[in-house]
């Protein structure tokens, strides 16, 4: 069967529209739907842009943070990008501590947005580019199920700078709000006190609020006992958080690095609940905990 040129053009546009719809649909595998979403409606050569790997988990399943805690495994992505494109590491939202005694795991639940920066080449001579990836995850509830999906996203080339898609602006803002923020004036120091790690947090001078509770999630899997209580309280000009080392007999690491999640925001006018902490251990020895009458038992 032969069609005239206008008919071919129409068919081509339909096929392209259908293909666009197809790649935009989430890929469902059991209790998880996976999708790649671009923040912008197009991309400009040479200008990095943000995409989200959106994993929508049916309740009561959870996936895992980069440090999963006592068991579990974080989702991973293997990009299949056009030549010249590179992808940055997946950026994870702060996790939720999920206690299943005697274990503690650090989980991600519900609508999970993992962001990545895609850097296109400075020159791109095609009308569009397709970003594809294989996504692997482990979800657990009472038991665990691994899953995988092939996802892809096709974006047209557009003028620089590429404009954010207004439809998705709120979702990307919410996803960024769950990423750990820079400390922004908060000062963190770590020290060893007897058989504990202590993270000291001093707010910026203009901080007038109060953080009534906070929880530390270490990046390293072997830093603290994940299931041990964490005692957060006011101390001096700020706060202190006591953590139980994973191996109390081992020398402390170079730093306490991780994410500190507060029960309230860390900065006036901000909704950010998670701060990135990279607190070097101070060399000075301090009196053991028993010398401190203020200490409360957790």
């Amino acid at each position: 069967m032969r069609y005239g040129a206008p008919m071919r053009a129409l068919l081509t546009s339909w096929i392209f529209a259908l293909a666009t719809l197809a790649v935009a649909a989430p890929v469902r595998n059991g209790p998880v739907a996976a999708k790649l979403i671009a923040e912008t409606r197009s991309f400009a050569p040479g200008q990095p842009f943000t995409v989200a790997l959106r994993l929508t988990l049916d309740p009561p399943w959870h996936a895992y943070w980069t440090n999963p805690g006592d068991s579990g495994l974080a989702p991973s992505i293997e990009w299949k990008l056009p030549a010249g494109f590179t992808a940055g590491e997946l950026q994870f939202p702060y996790p939720r501590a999920i206690a299943t005694p005697p274990f503690m795991t650090y989980g991600l639940e519900g609508d999970v947005w993992l962001l990545a920066t895609i850097a296109p080449p400075a020159e791109w001579n095609e009308a569009r580019a397709t970003l594809a990836a294989t996504v692997d995850w482990l979800i657990c509830d009472e038991y665990c199920v691994p899953g995988s999906a092939e996802v892809e996203l096709t974006l047209p080339v557009g003028a620089a700078p590429a404009e954010p898609d207004p439809v998705r602006a709120a979702a990307f803002a919410a996803a960024r709000a769950r990423l750990p923020a820079d400390p922004g004036g908060w000062a963190f120091r770590a020290r060893r006190e007897s058989d504990r790690f202590v993270l000291a947090a001093v707010p910026p001078a203009d901080f007038a609020g109060d953080v009534p509770a906070a929880e530390f999630f270490p990046f390293a899997e072997d830093l603290i006992q994940h299931n041990a209580p964490q005692a957060w309280r006011r101390a001096g000009a700020g706060y202190r958080l006591e953590l139980v080392p994973a191996d109390p007999s081992a020398p402390p690491p170079a730093a306490l690095s991780g994410v500190l999640v507060g029960a309230s925001p860390w900065h006036a006018g901000s909704s950010r609940r998670a701060l990135r902490v990279d607190a070097p251990f101070s060399d000075s020895e301090v009196p053991p905990r028993s010398a401190n009458p203020e200490r409360k038992t957790p």
Partner: peptide, 18 residues
């Protein structure tokens, strides 16, 4: 019965692995 003992041990500051 082990877990409450573990928690009690931690609360007392007698830090030991479970």
């Amino acid at each position: 019965f082990l877990l409450p003992i573990l928690i009690a041990a931690l609360a007392l500051g007698a830090v030991q692995a479970w």
